[in-house]
Structure formats: structure tokens, C-alpha cells
Nucleic acid binder design. Structure first.
Lengths: 297, 297
DNA sequence: AGCTCTTATGAATCATTGA
DNA sequence: GTCAATGATTCATAAGAGC
């Protein structure tokens, strides 16, 4: 069974919305990719989840996600515990343990190495420049398309590393050098949200992926509290899905996951409680779809 | 009170050895820095700790470490859970939670980003190219010397980044341009265990440290199961200790921590159950001390 | 268009103040 | 006391102004 609607954004609390079995039938989604609100943050959408209640708050949502995910699908959770009273909090670790009890398999922890981390200087702490991307699955033999995030070494030997940016992003996005891919990439680059000097991967990742992800540019959208750069969902979508597969983001924010899914020819379902974010996301999506539908023959 | 002996290697099981209160008085050590054997590995020294028993095995040791550490000292634990049946194991997270119950403060998790990670290729897993360096303390106001791992930006503006390698390692090691530092660094570079093309930090870390550590070269000593490169202990020793401070490594292996401590003018105490490792470590230490004692006036 | 300079700001953290 | 709220601090990057 398929979800009742595809390529849709629901303005709702995902804890409620996900229970709708017509919208979200069992085993109907190929990838769940999300960056939930962190604990102890002032968050207008979710009322700021306390660290102590975080696991308890997340588990019912995760239960629905488990139900919805296809057997060979993947669930990628971007999160990082923050500091309180000079200590790292433990709710992320407790969440991992709780998700395992729920039946999830904790396959891997990818390290997202952020070059431009939040500024700050303190006497006994450095700036936090990495986040966790936790990969869960239902079965041992989940689907993984490693070749999709790889590029033959030969392509790189010819060129200087510094000269590569836009063309490589285009190729990485579309897999071809078609005019459409170029136009989409140009549009994505031109959007205010994203810097114009986009390079997807450093040489080492491009050639040989590991479980450390590094993107030279970051998104600095101040409107959404949980923005990840376009490259992050792009990478995981390519790694865990194929064309026309269905991707769910229960905390989609301003729609980054949807944009990446559309650009890669995948279907998306997004849920977001904050009305203003949904409006913004829809605007971006409409604009991107306009470019794609005006495809030249 | 001071430990009964300094600059010494004990060939013993640290779970037993650490209980000796003459050797290890309360609050007598400035830094504990170690890379314990991981779970489920064939380890001749410790008989291979099963993942299920790992926390239980480690806690009594950690209790002694807590006793021995000075109030403002630090405990740095280099570890990474391995994969079993396609899943990351959870004993490291459980260990963190257990250590907190024991009284330790979990201050930070540093990400050690290993450029040349262990080779391998699997259908649903990339190579593991990062490890955790967990930082624990007894008090909120532990000692931290951030300047020791920093280099003024001015020093870097003059030079090309590419041209810097050995000289910068020397400067980073000794803090001076003395001939001794140069000789020691050259010796360390020349050792088979360590590659010759040593650069301590990439530009961004060198100038402004974060909680992601990246060393361009790695050690590939196959004799010891838990070898970290010289740069890793060097960095933490500089960050958390001063000259003549005392550093303890309860799983010192082939002596990397001791070599770093000696080169930086600190005192060390190492414990290692495997006789052959102790022999190797002593040989390296003797050789290094020979170079230092033959210092030219 | 290209360049320099200026300004604004972000998944933060800590110390201080006030209830 | 404990807990919550506020302000200062920090720098890589983007966006805009001015030439």
C-alpha cells in the first residue's frame, strides 16, 4: 500500500499526524530522514522539550516511524546533545538505547563534521563542530547504494581540486550533465538560503566515502531552528534510495529534505508543526518545481 | 602525596595494580589518558572482554582512576564501539552512563577523525574513520590550557600551508626552536612506528581548535591492538597538563603515551599487562631518553 | 563585473541577576 | 537554596554598499 498522498507537506504535529494509517500505511516509506528539535531549546513549534522528557517524547513518534518504514528502509536521525552545567547531556544515548528496545537496529553513527560551527570561546570548552547522524534500520539487510555517493577517481585526477565546485555539484545532483540538472543546481545555488559557492564533497569523501561527512559550506537560515545544509539530505537520499522512492521527514522545517528529494527525483512527505515554516517550504518547492516542469525538450 | 615512583612502567593488570595506595595515592595524578582494549577483540593481554561484561569489567578500574586523579585533573578515554551482527554495540554508551553514576562528569566527546582508517569494504557499511575521545573530570573547574594547542595566526600568515610539516611538529612539541626539540622530533619521526611526514594539525585546528581532532598521518603498528598515533596523546597532554605534571596510562601498550609525555617534559606512569609490549615500550623510552640526556650544551 | 570593506547573525555557552 | 531568564561573548560566512 502507498501513502494516500505523495509530495505533500502536512502542517501538523507528527506525533498525531503519523497515526493516520491512510496517510501512512504500514511499510510504505523507503527512507526517514529528519533533524528533530533538540532538548532544552526555546522552540515555538514544540514548546521546548526538556532533556529529561526527551526520550519519552520521542518514543511514540519513533514507534509510528517504525510502523511506516519499509522492511529494507532506513531511518537517519541528525541530532546532538547540548551542554548543561558544563556537561554533555545524555538524552541522545538514552534515546539510542530506547530505540533499540523498540526494535530498531542501530547500524551506524555517522559523524557530520561542521566546518563553521557556532562561535564562542570558553575557558574549558572548545566550539562544538560535529553532530551525530544516527542510522537505524529494521532489518540487517537494508538497502544501500554506495555507488551513488561515489565518483570514479579518474574524474578527479584530471582536475585541480580548487577549481571544482558548481560542475561537481551538478553532476553529483543529477548524475548526468543534462541541462536540467544544471538549471536546478543553479537555482538551488542562487537561493538566498544557500551560498553560491557550493561544493558537495571534499576530495577524500568524493572518492572514497567513510562514516565522517564533511561539507565545506553550511546553511545559515535564521528562520528555522533546525536547518541542515542541502548536502546532508542529498547525501543520505542518494545513499539509501533510488528514483521515485518515498522519503519522509517528520520535522521538515523549511523543507530542505523535500528540496533535495525533488532535485534527485524522489517523492517526499513532510510534516511540520510550525505554520510559517510550512509556508516557506511550499514557496521554495513551488519555485523549484517550476524550473523542473519548464524543462526544455 | 606523590606516587612512589615516576617514569615507570608496571607490567601488571591495572585492575590489581591501581589498588596499591603507595604506588597510587589519592589525588596524585594530573591526567589519565588511555585507550583500553575494545570489547570482543582477541586480546591476549586481557583475555578478550565480552561486550556484555565490558562495563562491569571497567568500572572497578575507573573507581581507582577516580581515586587517583587530582580534583582538577582530567580523564581522557579513547574508545569506539565495534560492530557485531551488523549493529554498533552499545557498551560505550552504557559505560558513559555508568561512569556518571560513579561520580565522573562527562565534559565532552571529542571526535578523532582518522584520515587513513582501517581498510575494508562491505555492502552496507563504510569504513569507520572516527573514534571517540571521551573527556571526564571530577569537578567543573578542571585545568585546561587552551593556548598550549594553539598557534598564533601571525605565524601562519607568513608561510604557505603546504610547506609546513616537520618544523611545525618540532615547534608544537617543544614550544621552542631549541636544538633538542628538533632532535627529539626527528627521532620520533624516524621511528618505524610513526610515519615520517608528520604534521600535527590542519590549518583550521592549529589556529582555532575545536572538538574534532584531525591528524593527517596515522600510526600503523600492528603489534599493539590499541595504538594511537603520537599526536593524539601529545595534543591532550598539552591541553590538560603542564611541565612535570604526572600522566597515567593504565593500558599503555607499546608506550606511546610515555613517549609523548617524555618529549613534552611530563612525568608518566604506565601499566601494561602484556609483557612483550612493556619490553617494546621500555626500549623506545630508553632510546628517546638517550637522545635527550646527550643534550648538547 | 570584480574588489574591498562593513555589517549582520547563527541548533551555543557561561556568568549573572532575579524570583 | 534552586531554578529561570537575561546579557555578553565569539567568528565564519553571507549579503550589501561603495568604488
Amino acid at each position: 500500500m502507498q501513502p494516500s498522498r505523495l509530495d505533500v507537506l502536512y502542517n501538523a504535529d507528527c506525533a498525531v499526524c503519523l497515526k493516520n494509517r491512510q496517510r501512512f500505511p504500514n511499510n510504505s516509506v523507503d527512507l526517514i530522514l529528519t533533524s528533530p528539535p533538540y532538548a532544552d531549546r526555546r522552540n515555538h513549534s514544540y514548546g521546548g522539550i526538556a532533556a529529561e522528557e526527551y526520550v519519552e517524547w520521542f518514543l511514540p513518534i519513533a514507534e509510528q516511524l517504525y510502523r511506516v518504514l519499509r522492511p529494507r528502509g532506513s531511518f537517519v536521525l541528525n541530532i546532538k546533545e547540548n551542554v548543561k552545567d558544563g556537561e554533555r547531556q545524555t538524552y541522545v544515548m538514552e534515546l539510542i538505547l530506547a530505540l533499540k528496545k523498540q526494535g530498531w537496529r542501530w547500524v551506524e553513527e555517522y559523524c557530520w563534521y561542521k566546518k563553521n560551527s557556532y562561535p564562542g570561546k570558553w575557558p574549558n570548552r572548545f566550539r562544538d563542530s560535529w553532530e551525530r547522524c544516527l542510522h537505524f534500520s529494521k532489518q540487517r539487510n537494508f538497502k544501500m547504494y554506495q555507488d551513488a555517493v561515489k565518483v570514479p577517481i579518474g574524474d578527479w585526477a584530471k582536475k585541480r581540486f580548487k577549481s571544482m565546485s558548481k560542475n561537481d555539484f551538478i553532476r553529483s545532483l543529477s548524475g548526468t550533465n543534462s541541462r536540467l540538472g544544471r538549471r536546478v543546481a543553479n537555482w538551488l545555488n542562487r537561493r538566498k538560503v544557500y551560498p553560491h559557492n557550493v561544493v558537495v564533497f571534499e576530495k577524500e569523501h568524493y572518492v572514497e566515502p567513510t562514516n565522517v561527512l564533511r561539507f565545506p559550506t553550511e546553511c545559515t537560515n535564521r528562520n528555522h531552528s533546525a536547518v541542515f545544509p542541502l548536502e546532508l539530505p542529498t547525501w543520505f537520499i542518494k545513499l539509501f534510495t533510488r528514483k521515485n522512492n518515498i522519503i519522509l521527514d517528520p520535522f521538515i522545517g523549511v523543507g530542505t529534505t523535500a528540496l533535495a528529494a525533488i532535485a534527485l527525483g524522489r517523492r517526499y512527505i513532510g510534516i511540520e508543526a510550525h505554520k510559517e515554516f510550512v509556508r516557506e517550504a511550499k514557496e521554495s518547492i513551488r519555485e523549484l518545481k517550476g524550473i523542473i516542469s519548464s524543462r526544455p525538450a
